[in-house]
Design a protein around this nucleic acid. Structure first.
Lengths: 124, 124
DNA sequence: ATGTGTGCAAACAGTTTGCAAGCTT
DNA sequence: AAGCTTGCAAACTGTTTGCACACAT
């Protein structure tokens, strides 16, 4: 049976609809609390897990920072992080032939790539 | 004045000399505890911070997990994470030519790559 | 002897879980 | 009405800090 339509779930989904960037659990809680005052942080984590399970959201995990979440459905991509302003941008395309880097006997199933440098604004 | 030569520091440095992979604070504690039985986890964190400051260690930040540490000064390399046992291994070599993925106007200075799959043991 | 470094425990931040009560179906 | 979902608080993990004591110098 599908999950029930609760105001909490609705408020949480709405937060992601309005956001144009990946949100942390704390940020989701801050946004959704405006609509559902007694909203508990545990509910955020529970619903987040369900929405990922349903593939409504995906986790965005970047090195050195806690995970954020964004709407699922985007095609395979990587990110570019500006070391000056901290902004994170999508980059499309993908390096090929990563199998050649894989140690003998290991099974390669996927990869994550983060480019680092200066974004257009910070590069001047 | 330089840090004092304590058995704790020695045991922690030794753990990294023998390890051929990045270690988590917990792993460092497990290894160094064999030599220094009453070793406290707080000491691990304190010494880790000092060793990074001294550039004896560098932090290895992987997406979705707490930081690990390895000896500084290694040449450019990446990591492979086993999705079953969670182990992290070094891989040598590099995809190269990532400039083609960089957005127009951005300045590419570096990159981080994580391969994901099954390690030799978990692959069977 | 001096004062830094350590072990322990408490404090913190982020995340998960147990349980009684509430709300959707 | 039935039982999934929530809020609350406690439990857990990873990390930091305060403090008295130990030990390297």
């Amino acid at each position: 049976m599908p999950p029930r339509e609760t105001i909490q779930r609705t408020a949480i989904r709405e937060a992601f609809c309005k956001a144009d960037r990946p949100l942390s659990p704390r940020e989701v809680h801050d946004i959704a609390s405006k609509r559902v005052p007694r909203l508990g942080i545990a509910t955020i984590y529970r619903v987040l897990r369900e929405l990922i399970e349903e593939e409504y959201l995906t986790a965005v995990e970047l090195p050195g920072e806690p995970p954020r979440y964004e709407r699922a459905g985007k095609k395979h991509h990587h990110h570019f992080r500006c070391r000056r302003c901290g902004g994170v941008f999508e980059v499309h395309g993908c390096p090929g032939d990563l199998r050649s880097l894989t140690p003998r006997g290991f099974r390669l199933e996927g990869h994550e790539l983060l480019l680092v440098g200066l974004c257009g604004k910070c590069n001047g």
